[in-house]
């Protein structure tokens, strides 16, 4: 039964990890920027859900609808005004720039919300279901379904919408996309906005499950790194595979060698993967 519980936990957590990482993966794949603000976006989304629930008693499920457009605009503006100016610079510059932006956002959050850990507690609590001795909390289950739904929405956007096809085109070959009449700058901004919106929504879902504090942003960012590298960049299925794999490794690792070593294990795996299979599980070779 322990094995079944670990497996179910990994599936549930894995979908959430995928949701955390997918916006990060989109930005990395399309803009070729390692977006270090991603973790702080997630925490900000969590604060949004918490604030709406505390003050107006709006359920986090509805907060998703508020977070998505809000964060999209936020990300769009940041890309247009700041990031776009250095978009062709080497990784050193773009990475350091997003680190600087992250410092600002994170400091602002510490200033306004304080570093205290908070928790969004639904009243009444939703309880948990158990099937054949495998216990899953209901709120976590719903969050997982919502995370899957968000991932699927992104998939649909990239597959069906004109703008989505343009995003994919820019990722595959920027110069060819320009020649086809795609406005690259606006696609960059939209992709970054989408990434931010996904981060915000992921944050809303995280608020249901994990404690909220500005200090947790680096942990989310670390998860996004590992998921992207494990699963391979730039594909929705890759992020899902990476998320579930990471959750499985953490679950099995915690059970076998203790929870203290789970993070170490995941980062060691990240480095091993980078060296041996930098394209990830589902990525294509030479596809950066």
């Amino acid at each position: 039964m322990l094995a079944a519980q670990i497996l179910i936990n990994a599936l549930v957590l894995g979908c959430l990890y995928a949701c955390i990482a997918i916006g990060f993966s989109l930005v990395w794949g399309v803009l070729n920027v390692i977006n270090l603000i991603h973790g702080s976006f997630i925490v900000l989304g969590a604060y949004l859900a918490w604030g709406l629930y505390q003050s107006l008693h709006i359920s986090p499920w509805y907060s998703l609808a508020v977070a998505a457009p809000l964060f999209f605009v936020f990300g769009y503006v940041i890309q247009r005004l700041i990031l776009n100016r250095v978009i062709t610079a080497p990784v050193l510059v773009t990475l350091t720039l997003t680190f600087g932006l992250d410092l600002i956002l994170n400091n602002a959050m510490i200033y306004y919300f304080k570093a205290d850990y908070r928790k969004l507690t639904l009243t009444p609590p939703m309880g948990s279901v158990s099937i054949f001795d495998v216990v899953v909390p209901v709120d976590r289950l719903i969050a997982t379904v919502a995370a899957l739904a968000l991932t699927f929405v992104l998939y649909l956007i990239l597959r069906r919408l004109r703008v989505g096809r343009a995003i994919v085109a820019v990722r595959l070959d920027r110069d060819a996309a320009i020649l086809m009449g795609v406005k690259v700058n606006s696609i960059y901004a939209i992709a970054f906005g989408l990434g931010a919106a996904l981060a915000g929504c992921a944050g809303v879902l995280m608020a249901l499950i994990f404690p909220i504090s500005p200090l947790t942003s680096t942990a989310y960012l670390g998860k996004a790194f590992v998921v992207c590298v494990l699963g391979g960049l730039g594909s929705v299925s890759g992020a899902l595979a990476g998320g579930i794999l990471l959750a499985l490794i953490e679950g099995v690792g915690s059970a076998m060698i203790g929870p203290a070593h789970a993070t170490t294990l995941s980062f060691v795996l990240l480095i091993v993967f980078l060296i041996l299979r930098p394209q990830g599980l589902l990525g294509r070779k030479g596809f950066e």
Partner: peptide, 26 residues
């Protein structure tokens, strides 16, 4: 690690901090 380039090297070197910190922590 230096067989990696660009973004991948940056990520790997960032992760090194995390690995060392966790090792020392444990």
């Amino acid at each position: 690690l230096l067989r990696l380039r660009g973004h991948y090297f940056a990520i790997a070197s960032l992760s090194l901090i995390e690995v060392f910190r966790e090792l020392v922590n444990n």
